[in-house]
Design a protein around this nucleic acid. Structure first.
Lengths: 349, 349
DNA sequence: CTCAGATTCGCAAACGTTTGCGACACTTGG
DNA sequence: CCAAGTGTCGCAAACGTTTGCGAATCTGAG
């Protein structure tokens, strides 16, 4: 139905190859005929068939993004960053939701490969079997892993600097005068979360007056945060500050604190991680470590586009993105905190 | 690099057309050779090039989704529903963020058309010029409008039943015994919001003891909700229940109420609209009208797939999806409410 | 005027499929 | 044994581009 390059060629009295050259680079075609061809193409409302072009050029000008669930605000932000970058790179983005299911993930990859996608971004590859991973690596298409630390893999990675994020939180709480500090986090196996924990603990321990935080592991969702907070407040009612491994856990902490009549930040300072959109609207607005989600998406696309440009050098690239502290209203100076606590407890390691 | 159909043909000693038939429908090819071809294809790890196939079949097996911003949880949910449905329909989804910019929107449409996409879903077409709209309609590709009421357009639509949603909220508040009721909503031009308002007002007026609500118009975001609530509470401190046109506005109302020391639901009942994910985690958990966002996405894809299936009958389809009340903790029975109010005020229309 | 070089453009192959049509062999009913 | 039908498969065109190569024309210096 739509006009093809043949129509334009016939209508403007030249060969289709001339039309192609005139419309694309314009090199090797007379200025006059080029303008004429362009005019005719505009008049016929000609739109090049990109999939026909893709057949011969071998590039589809689309990128795949496989996330666990786009409803997760984190991935929505990543997706937005990726989409904007893809668009400026003249590509479009096909979206896949894997639900962290390994088979589903591989099916998506296969489907994307069949479309000869130019590159794939995915947020997790951990649960893939060894065989699946090598299959992925041998597929020939550039792949960048989101939110995964650099490794010796054949894949590129984009990751926030979780460790310095943890350190940032630690120094902030220390600066506010807190000494009885806890960290609520997810399972030990979780790479990013344990990086945050490591950065946090090390910064506390290497302070001039070293502090040994209480670290509790649990589920890293809303309920997990609430549950860990209850457990913590039962065992250590004297803690004055909590660092939650992510904002959603922090919301759970708010819930648990509220249930006990504890006010935030008056009775308990709280700092999260991620800076998801709703941490500003929740009450009190949450102080947190901002993770550059948007930038992760755009950085991943940048890598993919570079890799797609020169097929020759396919060396993986690893980018670690900086994080920053966003100060809102869930933390408070603890001037008198030390005085109220018995000395013996403070030196407790 | 990857194996092509020719490789399979050569390797299995048959013609490429036989390979194609064997791998696709299997009709017209001997069982024995078919199995042989399939085995060879599997051995060579053959993956059909879908873009080559698309060239001849004319179908790309991908659908376009243009939303204003995927970071909006509403659209993330819609996108998820659309993606799931697309996947079961053997299509994939390309994601576009328009920021409600008309030009950007048209650029995306053009880009999608160049890829010979099978159908397009978009969430707003209101700001497009008349010319752009006819251009859209004449593009030949099925289009379904998200969250737009049915109209005489040439486009299909999918929309929640906003009017009965408003009525649902009204009957619920009446049932709780409220008589001094307000509705905070967006600008009058906004179709969906005015539908909600109409349903709400009509249900209140047609009750056995008719009630005339206070209706205030403003911005339909967090700040707008807070601002309208302040204005309302200044002018009508006796209101006992508020229906906010969407959940985000409701969050603004919570904020404003908190600032005045009003407790929800003890002092003020509050009901929202949308049932966004965070209405359950906010405090208090928000009673709201659930909008079938996921279903909107999947319904849109259903329409598109049907329209793409038989190109002959391209009559637009309009679906209105049911809403339902989700009862949480932001509303409360108002037994004594009527008794405390002077009679004169109640009959005020 | 001539001829080399540059410019402009057409021809045709190629990308990897699908599919209508015809060739051929095999079955089957008369 | 023959004709018609059926099953199986190959041939080649088509989808709409891009691009290497060569032909034709033009330019300008000698």
């Amino acid at each position: 139905m739509p006009a093809t390059i043949k129509d334009v060629a016939r209508e403007s009295g030249v060969n289709i190859s001339t039309v192609s050259r005139a419309l694309n680079h314009g090199y090797g075609v007379n200025d006059q005929t080029r303008e004429h061809v362009i005019a005719v193409a505009a008049r016929l409302n000609y739109r090049p068939n990109r999939i026909a072009r893709g057949l011969v050029t071998g590039r589809s000008h689309s990128l795949g993004l496989i996330v666990s669930d786009i409803r997760n605000p984190f991935f929505a932000e990543v997706a937005r960053g990726a989409e904007d970058a893809a668009r400026t790179g003249n590509c479009d983005l096909v979206l896949c939701n894997s639900d962290l299911d390994a088979d589903k993930q591989m099916q998506y990859v296969q489907s994307l490969l069949e479309k000869r996608i130019d590159g794939i971004m995915m947020n997790s590859v951990s649960m893939l079997s060894r065989e699946q991973q090598t299959q992925l690596a041998g597929s020939g298409v550039p792949i960048v892993l989101l939110n995964r630390p650099a490794s010796n893999h054949t894949f590129s990675t984009v990751c926030a600097d979780n460790e310095s994020g943890g350190a940032l939180a630690a120094r902030y709480l220390l600066g506010l005068g807190h000494r009885r500090i806890a960290h609520l986090t997810g399972p030990r196996q979780h790479g990013n979360l344990s990086d945050r924990a490591r950065g946090f603990v090390r910064a506390l321990q290497s302070a001039e007056n070293p502090v040994q935080p209480i670290v509790l592991h649990g589920k890293f969702n809303f309920d997990g945060g609430a549950e860990l907070a209850r457990k913590l407040l039962d065992a250590h009612p004297d803690v004055t500050a909590i660092f939650a491994a992510n904002d959603v856990m922090a919301f759970g902490v708010v819930q648990a604190a509220l249930d006990r009549g504890l006010r935030i930040p008056e009775d308990l300072s709280l700092i999260g991680f991620d800076n998801i959109e709703f941490s500003v609207v929740v009450h009190p607005p949450l102080t947190t470590i901002h993770q550059p989600k948007y930038e992760m998406g755009s950085a991943a696309v940048d890598i993919l586009l570079r890799l797609a440009r020169d097929k020759s050098k396919q060396i993986p690239e690893h980018r670690r993105l900086g994080v920053e502290l966003v100060e809102r209203q869930s933390c408070q100076q603890r001037n008198s905190g030390e005085l109220r606590l018995p000395r013996g407890r403070q030196s407790h390691r």
